[in-house]
Design a protein around this nucleic acid. Structure first.
Lengths: 155, 155
DNA sequence: ACATAAATGTAGCATTAGCTACACTCACGA
DNA sequence: TCGTGAGTGTAGCTAATGCTACATTTATGT
């Protein structure tokens, strides 16, 4: 059976538990925690780039949430030093926020390209990447990049 | 700009907003919601298969959470008709729970195999798959399966 | 048989993300 | 100038996931 081959014990050492799993699950949970922040930062960066500014209502609309929800999340971004804003003005990113946005954006493209490269329809690739990207470790991203480079990024 | 390539189109239609995004983000959020349930169900199935029963404490340990947290989640599983349990006894899966476990397990393997096939180190593949698997749509899974079949499922 | 340790359960609190309802501002037109 | 409506902000509620602390029950060893 799958999860813990170490329980099959016949010979060898015998470690009673498998904290390895705990670490993995914990990591996945942590990733999910920052996922929301990342989505907001990326979107805000896009809005600023395209419209010159990012307004709470617009962010809410794009993310498919109510505006108070967006406002609350932006408050969290500010708390974490990723964004700034003043009452009735737009939302702006700090240097840290911009850097995060760039990283997130690059990662998103990489994941989408990867999915497309292995035959996932563009629509599904975009959609699924939105959720998966937040869980791709450095090692995985590096592997993706190498894979894409090797096969010339062709479909 | 990046996030919405659909803004690029010089000719064609030009839709002012992009509710498409909202749908995508919403989907990712929903997926994340069931992710926890799936993790629990999969783990419980494993424990039953290996130990003959699944105890709350063991589940908590494996998932890296406190036991009350595990208990609370199991309560949710019961509410959703995926598991059953009686005070001071083990946790069991309903038919629905077992079916879900099977699907989750298959999906997990598929994602891991895929990552490995593309050159991700086994360790990272296992770890990242834990988070990514919950966001892989049917279309994506199908594409993964096809890709693996084509290249002979070799490591 | 009974005391005690380990496992399980319960209570209460915090945080995050969502929502609706309501209050306030600002910009624009009459 | 003064409304009014769209955009923002705030309050207060829900649900999920976590936690610690405490209560209970089971099981175990003497």
């Amino acid at each position: 059976m799958p999860a813990s081959p170490s329980h099959a014990p016949a010979a060898t050492i015998e470690m009673p538990e498998e904290p390895t799993h705990a670490l993995r699950f914990g990591k996945a949970r942590t990733a999910q925690a920052s996922a929301v922040l990342e989505d907001y930062v990326e979107l805000i960066a896009d809005l600023i780039a395209v419209h010159g500014e990012a307004r709470a209502t617009e962010v809410a609309k794009r993310l498919g949430v109510s505006h108070p929800t967006a406002v609350k999340s932006v408050a969290r971004l500010k708390r974490e030093g990723l964004a700034t804003s003043r009452p009735y003005r737009g939302i702006f990113l700090t240097d840290a926020g911009r850097q995060l946005a760039d990283r997130v954006r690059a990662r998103h493209r990489l994941v989408v390209d990867m999915l497309v490269a292995v035959g996932v329809p563009a629509e599904a690739a975009e959609s699924d990447a939105e959720g998966m990207e937040h869980h791709a470790s450095e090692a995985t991203l590096k592997a993706f990049a190498r894979f894409l480079a090797d096969r010339g990024t062709k479909t």
